[in-house]
Design a protein around this nucleic acid. Structure first.
Length: 338
DNA sequence: AAGTCGGGGTA
DNA sequence: TACCCAGACTT
């Protein structure tokens, strides 16, 4: 049996049943694929249900306000996904009359849809005969091929894309793509892979050569940096707190926050507020590319002059706005110490 | 090609 | 800690 058929056969008996697999609606498949970018299924599944319930079709999403779209994304991370999702919905409504293009080369022109997502929608919604390559597939392929090319390099992606397009040629692409991703996440796991129950064992050069535990090979990434910040909880006796909206792009783009500023490591370690107030709390917020060290201060509103973009909002209304997890943690700590 | 962009689970 | 997760966009 060739490898494509092995994957499809395995999927038909062992594949997982997921809520976006019982439809060919490109809209729902699109939403699921974007939510799952760099996100585990266990984390994304609740967001998927809530999102498609509130925005059941592309017209509803296109006509929504971005603030509400971000609210439904709150806590999920990579917020440009939500902004691009919103922009792409408008593209589909305005330029494609509400109907998704049916080929991945066209789909990839939409905001937030790259090589993986375009092929995923193309395959799952429209049956395009092309293979998808995500983190799971990179791992499976590098092991099956026994290939030590760095998987985080463009040339390797291109080579793997050509190979997987051959693998999928004579089988159902939906079952093939779902199957190879399931094998990656359930059997061919990063540590302790289940080689002895793997349907690709007979095809696996990495296993034959005893190299599975060394694959996939990645080039070392640059070391993470540390940045220091002061955050300010500015609240009055009426239980109101100062918030403001972040710029549309960049880190936490479009989300709301409490006033804060970057400070030097030395100033951060002194735990001394630049505004009149007292030290409240210390925490670390971890990003992919840096650690954010945070001091939180309680600041009295009498000595604080409100800037134009800032506003006092009562505590029982902050749930209307979308905040980053860092600010939500600060609010939570604050609430539980009152 | 390298850097930016979240948050959570796991060893 | 460090790595990984149904990656894409910017520079």
């Amino acid at each position: 049996m060739d490898i494509g058929q092995s994957i499809v056969t395995w999927f038909e008996s062992q594949g997982r049943d997921l809520p976006w697999r019982d439809t060919r609606d490109p809209y729902r498949i699109w939403i699921a694929e974007v939510i799952l970018q760099q996100t585990r299924i266990a984390q994304g599944i609740k967001y998927f249900y809530r999102f498609v319930e509130r925005f059941p079709d592309v017209q509803t999403l296109a006509s929504a306000h971005q603030d509400e779209v971000l609210k439904y994304w709150e806590g999920l991370g990579y917020y440009s996904r939500a902004r691009n999702l919103h922009a792409a919905a408008k593209q589909v409504v305005e330029k494609y009359e509400g109907k998704f293009p049916q080929h991945y080369t066209e789909l990839q022109k939409l905001r937030g849809i790259g090589p993986y997502t375009a092929r995923a929608i193309g395959s799952f919604a429209f049956g395009n005969q092309t293979g998808v390559i995500d983190g799971n597939v990179l791992r499976v392929m590098s092991r099956v091929l026994g290939d030590f090319s760095p998987v985080n390099q463009q040339s390797t992606r291109k080579k793997f894309q050509e190979i997987i397009d051959q693998w999928v040629k004579n089988v159902d692409s939906r079952n093939f793509n779902n199957g190879i991703m399931d094998i990656g996440s359930v059997v061919c796991t990063p540590t302790q892979p289940g080689c002895l129950i793997c349907p690709l064992l007979d095809h696996c050069k990495g296993y034959k050569e005893g190299m599975v535990h060394l694959l996939p090979f990645k080039e070392k990434k640059t070391d993470r940096k540390i940045k220091h910040y002061h955050f300010y909880l500015i609240s009055n006796t009426r239980g109101e707190v100062v918030i403001r909206q972040r710029p549309a792009k960049g880190l936490w783009g479009g989300l709301w926050e409490i006033p804060n500023q970057k400070v030097s490591k030395e100033e951060w370690e002194e735990k001394k507020s630049r505004l009149a107030g007292e030290f409240f709390h210390q925490m670390k917020h971890v990003f992919t590319h840096f650690d954010m060290m945070i001091n939180v201060f309680l600041v009295s509103p009498q000595e604080y002059d409100l800037k134009p973009a800032e506003q006092f909002i009562s505590k029982d209304k902050i749930h209307i706005f979308a905040f980053s997890k860092a600010v939500l943690k600060i609010f939570d700590k604050w609430q539980n110490t009152d």
